[in-house]
């Protein structure tokens, strides 16, 4: 324990950007849940390299991160919020669903909206065991994706495509599979951006490939 404090102290007292980054990497390598609050704090330091290291460290710690991160999601610093939402998406625990849906719809920062939109697809939906409850929440998520598929920002629409690709491959999301396909088809035919169209085509191709193997 005292060992970990040394590492936390190194993060808190680092005086240069490279030193901070190095200290965060060291702390993250300890894979200790007691490091979570410090790693979350680093997301708000406005140091992209250090934040990236903290993101990786938090993701590696898995579900234990979700509750403290939800409690500490920074309402003022949108950079920190975008990193936090990426962590929540990668861990994929459905406890984050409410926060992610709200962020995907109405966060003022595009970086947060697109990270949250993608995260809707990478949630581990099978962790909602009760089928009716799961389906209701999937439908709610789908509505948010449908709305964001009309966003002016191509990157948000691209994130919709990525989320749909993930949902399409999840057995736990079977209940909305047809609607997911429909939306993927629409985007791959009609989206004004060639990158968005092609990403959605890729998702549909992946599906036909897996059906033939």
């Amino acid at each position: 324990m005292s060992d970990l404090h040394t590492y936390i102290h190194a993060v808190e007292t680092a005086t240069s950007a490279p030193a901070l980054c190095e200290a965060v990497i060291q702390l993250a390598q300890k894979k200790d849940t007691a490091a979570i609050p410090t790693l979350i704090a680093v997301l708000g330091y406005n140091n992209p390299a250090a934040a990236q290291a903290a993101v990786a460290g938090l993701i590696a710690l898995g579900d234990a991160v979700v509750e403290p991160l939800l409690a500490q999601l920074d309402g003022y610093n949108y950079g920190a919020r975008a990193y936090g939402v990426r962590v929540l998406g990668s861990i994929g625990h459905p406890a984050a669903l409410r926060v992610l849906l709200a962020a995907a719809q109405s966060d003022f920062a595009p970086s947060v909206r697109r990270a949250a939109t993608k995260a809707i697809g990478t949630l581990r939906w099978q962790l909602i065991p009760e089928e009716t409850a799961r389906e209701a929440q999937l439908r709610e998520a789908l509505m948010v994706l449908q709305r964001n598929s009309e966003a002016a920002d191509w990157a948000v629409r691209y994130a919709v495509g990525v989320a749909l690709d993930h949902l399409h491959q999840q057995a736990a999301a079977r209940a909305i599979r047809e609607a997911v396909r429909l939306l993927l088809n629409r985007l791959s035919d009609r989206d004004p951006d060639i990158v968005v169209r092609s990403r959605c085509q890729l998702a549909l191709q992946r599906d036909s490939l897996s059906m033939h193997t």
């Binding site: 939109t117 993608k118 691209y158 092609s198 990403r199 890729l202």
Partner: peptide, 12 residues
């Protein structure tokens, strides 16, 4: 293009 799409996915 596949690896470019993967890169783009990661950046979201």
């Amino acid at each position: 293009t596949l690896s470019l799409f993967q890169g783009l996915d990661q950046l979201l």
